[in-house]
Structures are given as structure tokens and as C-alpha cells.
Design a protein around this nucleic acid. Structure first.
Lengths: 267, 267
DNA sequence: ACGGTGATTTTTGTCGACAATTTTTCAAAG
DNA sequence: CTTTGAAAAATTGTCGACAAAAATCACCGT
């Protein structure tokens, strides 16, 4: 009856006809994000809306929205003339991102301490710590890194929740999404190296000390510990930027850091 | 020759045919922002894309982008079913926003101190302080509040620049755009009240102390001062939420705070 | 009268089209 | 061979159209 120009917008792209309720925006977001993080698009490259739209099998509109989202997350950069390019980070940018996350986590911890976080929440955090201990195991061989990552992420979120501030929580989510500032950014590649286990043990001690400070309502101590805790990531950053550069491929966004030469010698 | 469906998309709206190079997105952004801040849309109201598009004389596309932007800025809230509504803030949200800004400004100051901000930049900041002194005048009657606002904003940006960190600077811009967290959020209404001048004198003292701390490379002091400085805004917030509620109309986003009853008795 | 149910109207997400720029290409001149 | 300039191609911002979903409303049964 009616003209019906676009009956089936998802016709190609083999096997996805099933669930995929109704959001091609998510497809665009994940597709673009993956292409950036896995190096499909080199840093500085201009992102063509039409090309991506065709490759992902969606229209330009959701691609454009995905690009806006990734600009907010710091993966893309708006060009003055219009359009976006893959962001190019310096080591200093990543360092500042980590320091920023540490500072805001420090704020969350201070608020939790000063305002009196509910005991139930603190206990919940301690529960996660217990599970992290279990994931660590007793020897390095027994360590379940994937589970550690998941639990670590959970713990950081849970502590953010102790602040009782939705504003701070939201902001932490934001900075955690920045290229390599997230609390679990460098864990993927850590499974292979000797200093790893010791590093994780130190991190666990930080976790416990932070909770202790919150329970004792020692706000300044909690904040300082959070900043120091975040700085653990700096060591890993410099490792993967220096001697460990060969294995840097495992770290999601590291190809965005200027001076890295990772793309080749693959496959 | 060609069909040309939309020859002149900006035909109505009287006098704007001049500059307005090419961005109806800006029109949508400013129009929506104004309607929210001046109370044209009450908190909790759903924002209709079509209605706004028609009222502003643009298509739905730029309106939609403007809505995304304002969600990022914290003025709107996404509804789970789709679309946006005007955000409803609690006093606690605003307090946390102010604390967040203070903390990040504190980070900027600490970095500036620890990493050694260039003397030229510090001198530039001091220059702004001198101009603020001039704008303050000697008696309350001579105070030029508009100029004070402008210079205050400038000073905060300039100090953020001292950190030397684009990441921190960008984040400060972001949280400064949050509903009432900006450094000059409450200055508009301050012109009328007695405690005002003293408050501004204290603020100036903070400014000077912060610069002094940065120059002496006393990072912790600089950070603590920045947090304390931001908290000056708390007094004004409570004033306009309490006894001064009659005059709250002058404060841009205060109609978003739940429990405020300002919209009526106007005009 | 009231609560549930089905129809109608509004609203959103997505699409392709088009004009104004911006970028690239290519050729001629210095 | 480099530089300059103009033509051509590509890209972006914006628009109206449509289908699926949500919200609103009328109706009916108990």
C-alpha cells in the first residue's frame, strides 16, 4: 500500500537476526569502539560517517550519535572543520587521567568517611575483598585474572556507592571510561609478568586500608589512600610503554598513545 | 531545476539573517537551555522533540543533538522508555556538584604547585586579581558585579590552565557547566544583599592565597584552599533556598531544585 | 462506579536525500 | 620540481518521511 522505502535495514551482516531488540545505535557504538581500541583505525585518522555506516549496516544517524558518545568518552576528538578523528594521547594525558580518577575516588572515599557510610555497605565491600582473595589464590599459577578484573571493577563501584552521592558516582563512571584511566585498564596484560602478583597484593592492602579508614571516619586518610592506589596503574603504564612494549597489544586503548608502535608484527 | 524542498530553513524568526553562519544546532542548544533555566519547562516535564523543533524553527535532528548535550551537562535526564525530561535536583545534588568542582580545582592547583607552574602564568592570574580589585571598588555602591563575574570566570579558567593538564582543564569545564556548580553560579543574585561585599573580599583572599601556595609549590595547601573556596558557594545556595527564596528567580538553574517554588508571582 | 482492555494518537528511533563546505585531485605556471 | 589555482569528489549538517513503540483515551464488563 505505502511506498515502504526501507523494509529491512538489517538485511546483511550474517547472523544477528535474533534478539537484537531494536537499537542500531548500540551496534554503531560497539562497532566503532572496537575498531578504535583494536587499532582498526589508527590515531589521527578521520572517521568517515558514510564508510562506517555502510560497514556496520546502519544509517548515518546512529553512527553520528555513537561518535558524539565516544567524543565524550575521550576516544574521539572533534575536528574544527567538522567530523571527528581518532584521538591521539600523550603519556601525560594518560597520567593525568589516572590522577583525575584517583582524586575523584578520593573524594568519594572522603565523603563516605565523613558522612558515615552505612555499615551494611562497608560489609558488602569487604565481601568482595574476600572473593578477590579467593581469586588470587595462594600461588601465581592459581590466580584467576579474569575473575580478579571483574571483582576489582565491582569493588571500585561499590566503594563509589559508599559516598552516597549519585553525582560523584556518575562522574566516576565517566572518568573510568576514559581511554586508560579505568581501574582495570592494565589488568588484561598483567597475567604474564613476574611483578604482577606482588602488585595485586599491594592493591588488596590498599583496598583494606581504604575500607578501614572509611569505617573509622578518617576522611583525609581514605582520600590519600585512594590517590595512591590509583597511582599503581602508573607503574603498569610505564612498563607497557617501555620494556613491555612487545606485549602492549593486550592493553585495550594503548594504540592511542603517541609514540607507541604496536600495530605491526601482528597476526 | 532541482526539486529543492527546503530552500530557506530559517525564514521566520524575524531578525537573524545576518551572521548566524551555519548552525541551527546552536540555536536549538541555546533555546532549550534557556527554556529550562528560566523555568519555561518545569522540572520533570518531558521534552517533546517535535514541539521544540517547531518552536525554534529547526528540524528535529539538531534538537535531538542539543538534548544529548544537555543530558551530558546534567540539565536533562534520559527516560528509560526513550526521550528526555527536565532533571530534578535535590539540594544534596547541588552540594555534591560544588564539592566535586572544588576537588577538581584542588587537583588543578596541586598539580600546578607540584609540577611548577610557569611564572608567566601566575603573573597573568595576578593581573586578573588586580582587575577584580578594581571592579570591587572601595564601597559596595561602586562594585561592578557583571565585570566581577566575568573576571572571576576568567581567573578560574586561568588557574586551571596553570595545571598544564588539558585533561583536568577539560573536566573542569564540564563540571563547571553542571546546573549550579559553576564558579559564578550565584553571583547574579548577589548584588542585592548585605553580606555580599564581605563574601567577595573573602573570595579574593582565597584567590591570592591559592596563587601564593602555587608559587611556593605547596600543593596540599593549594588544594585545600581550592576546596574551601568552592564551599563559599554553599552559603549562597542555602541563602537562596531559605530566607532569600523570594529573590531566587535571579539564579539560573535554581528552579531545578526540588522544593523550590519560584515559578509563580513573576512578571 | 471502577478496573481492565482494545483502539487511537503522539513520540521516538532510524532512514535516505540534498546543499553547503571542506578536502582532494589535477593541471598549468613559475 | 614546487607552488598556485581551479575543478571535482567526498563529507558534513540538516531536513522531512516513515514504522515501531509508547502514551492516551474510549469503551466495555463485572
Amino acid at each position: 500500500m505505502y511506498t515502504n522505502i526501507h523494509t529491512e535495514p538489517l538485511q546483511e551482516s550474517s547472523a544477528l537476526a535474533e534478539a537484537e531488540k531494536k537499537i542500531s545505535f548500540q551496534r554503531a557504538l560497539m562497532g566503532l569502539r572496537e575498531r578504535i581500541l583494536t587499532g582498526g583505525l589508527a590515531m589521527g585518522d578521520r572517521v568517515s560517517e558514510v564508510a562506517l555506516a555502510r560497514e556496520l549496516g546502519v544509517s548515518r544517524t546512529p553512527v553520528r550519535e555513537a561518535m558524539s558518545e565516544l567524543v565524550e568518552q575521550g576516544l574521539l576528538e572533534r575536528m574544527p572543520t567538522g567530523g571527528c578523528m581518532v584521538r591521539s594521547l600523550t603519556r601525560a594525558d594518560v597520567v593525568d587521567g589516572i590522577e583525575l580518577r584517583g582524586t575523584i575516588e578520593g573524594l568519594a572515599c572522603r565523603l563516605a568517611a565523613e558522612r558515615g557510610a552505612p555499615e551494611a555497605g562497608i560489609v558488602a565491600c569487604e565481601g568482595i575483598l574476600g572473593r578477590i582473595d579467593a581469586a588470587l589464590g595462594v600461588s601465581e599459577q592459581e590466580t584467576d585474572f579474569e575473575r580478579y578484573m571483574e571483582l576489582n571493577e565491582q569493588f571500585h563501584q561499590c566503594v563509589a556507592g559508599l559516598s552516597g552521592s549519585g553525582v560523584v558516582q556518575k562522574e566516576l563512571e565517566r572518568v573510568g571510561a576514559m581511554p586508560m584511566a579505568g581501574p582495570s585498564a592494565f589488568l588484561q596484560g598483567q597475567a604474564l609478568f613476574p611483578h604482577t602478583l606482588r602488585s595485586l597484593v599491594v592493591a588488596q592492602d590498599h583496598h583494606r586500608s581504604i575500607l578501614d579508614a572509611i569505617r573509622r571516619r578518617e576522611g583525609a586518610r581514605a582520600a590519600a589512600l585512594a590517590v595512591e592506589h590509583a597511582r599503581l596503574a602508573l607503574r603498569n603504564l610505564d612498563f607497557f610503554l617501555g620494556e613491555g612494549a612487545r606485549h602492549a597489544r593486550r592493553i585495550p586503548g594503548i594504540s592511542l598513545v603517541a609514540g607507541t608502535t604496536v600495530q605491526e608484527n601482528d597476526l
